[in-house]
Design a protein around this nucleic acid. Sequence first.
DNA 1: AAAACATATCGATAAATCTCGATTTATAAA
DNA 2: TTTATAAATCGAGATTTATCGATATGTTTT
Lengths: 100, 100
Amino acid sequence: MNVIEINKALSNETRLKILNWLKSPEENFPPHKDLGHFNDGVCVQYIKEKTGLSQSTISHFLSLMQKAGLITPTRHGKWTYYKRNEQMIKSYLQYLSKEL
Amino acid sequence: MNVIEINKALSNETRLKILNWLKSPEENFPPHKDLGHFNDGVCVQYIKEKTGLSQSTISHFLSLMQKAGLITPTRHGKWTYYKRNEQMIKSYLQYLSKEL
DNA sequence: AAAACATATCGATAAATCTCGATTTATAAA
DNA sequence: TTTATAAATCGAGATTTATCGATATGTTTT
């Protein structure tokens, strides 16, 4: 776990929002047409639409968050779904509580 | 409390270290010649020496951390002492634990 | 009042981040 | 096998951050 990398990932309004939206996808995104669930998270397209930023920017943001370990991608056909990595988030919070 | 501002302040190795050193000044810094205690924290000079960075950079870093609310300055004569703002740090951790 | 010292601010350059549109890659549909 | 769609990567300009030396400000000592 790289705390600085995580803090950087969390130093942006949009990325914080994305992480928050992913806590309850059913409340924040329309249902996926192919899958009937959010088990693997939400596709890039929906996240892009909700933020209003460009596809490349969102892809980049998700990549940053993934490298920091905050989210995990799963590929289903041509879609990539991203979901929160609760284990990493928990470890991060525990670390901060101790070390900060 | 501005979470993004705080996260930015915590996105740098040196600044994280400073915040950590300030948890136990007696273990990390020499005693102040004028005061016999660390009640108001540590002077800029000592922090500068411990990091090896320039005076202006350290002053700038401390200013960033202060604006984020993480530390508090106290002036004693020509020295400025900085100490942790435990209340803000606690609020920040509580916020993260809930909202992240 | 002048000199010395600690800190803050200014100005500048290099590096990193933000954001976009264009292109490429991977997969699915026709 | 061509076409369409989703996502990733590339290249670039604008903005922000890192870092320094020089200068300014405030305080103390001489």
